[in-house]
Simulated scan of single mutants.
Amino acid sequence: MAKRGAYAKGVVKREEILEAALEIVGRRGYRNASVREIADAVGLSPAGLLHYFGTKEQLFVEILRARDRRDTASDDELEFFDAFLAVVRHNPEVPGLVQLYTQLQAEAADPGHPARAYFLDRTEEVHAAARTAIAAGQREGRIRADLDPEWIIRAGHALADGLQNAWMLDPTIDMAADVEQFFALLKP
């Protein structure tokens, strides 16, 4: 059944808000992007914008979800490791989104934080895809069979997140080159 009326308009407006927020936060950063600026970009008051998300924190979580949808939509045809590397290569183009991700990830250590469920769900989803890709790679002889798949996942996850933190302090770090080097170590 097609969505009609006010509900459909609300869905469209919410997507418009997220598109504007992705651009603004990506360009200006987590701390420099205000709810007012995002609201102004879509013709709403700050209170009107938050009507669609509830709180500023939930808006920022939804920005990350929208970023993930955008990143994975363009990578549907890529193999897991290539898609992962494509995201790492794209990150320097959206420094504010990298900043938002790392900030909320740290805050999500608090069990009551609104971003906690997002990070737990996202981690399980990415790790499940990685398990599938690693198992296939080991069966096909493209990934060393002597390496524990769970170690590969943990080490790769830690490397990617650690590189983002290091890159924010030193933008000359080539995150993609370091991830490629890690992937090379996995080959027989």
Rank of each mutant, 00 (worst) to 15 (best):
A83W: 09
F84P: 01
F84Q: 13
L85H: 10
V87D: 14
V87M: 13
V87Y: 14
R89M: 06
H90W: 15
H90Q: 14
H90P: 02
P92Y: 10
P92V: 03
P92L: 05
E93G: 13
E93I: 04
V94L: 10
V94T: 11
P95M: 10
G96S: 11
G96I: 00
L97A: 09
L97N: 02
L97S: 03
V98K: 08
V98L: 10
Q99V: 07
L100M: 10
L100F: 01
L100Q: 06
Y101V: 06
Y101S: 02
Y101N: 13
Y101R: 05
Q103A: 15
Q103R: 15
L104W: 05
L104K: 00
L104H: 03
L104Q: 09
L104E: 07
Q105C: 11
A106W: 10
A108D: 02
A108K: 00
A108L: 06
A108S: 14
A109W: 09
D110W: 13
D110A: 10
D110T: 07
P111N: 07
G112H: 04
H113E: 04
P114D: 01
P114N: 02
A115Y: 00
A115H: 00
A115C: 02
A115E: 07
A115D: 00
A115K: 01
R116C: 00
R116A: 04
R116Y: 05
A117C: 04
A117N: 09
A117D: 13
A117K: 12
Y118L: 01
Y118T: 00
Y118K: 03
F119D: 03
L120Q: 11
L120G: 07
L120K: 12
D121Y: 02
R122N: 15
R122I: 04
R122T: 12
R122H: 15
T123M: 09
T123K: 14
T123P: 06
T123A: 07
E124D: 15
E124W: 13
E125W: 14
E125G: 10
A129H: 11
A129S: 01
A129C: 05
A130E: 01
A130T: 08
R131S: 03
T132P: 00
T132L: 14
I134S: 00
I134M: 07
I134V: 10
A135G: 04
A135W: 09
A135E: 15
A135Q: 06
A136W: 10
A136G: 06
G137N: 05
G137H: 06
Q138T: 08
Q138A: 07
R139W: 05
R139G: 07
G141W: 08
G141D: 07
G141L: 05
R142V: 00
R142F: 04
R142W: 11
R144L: 08
R144K: 08
R144C: 07
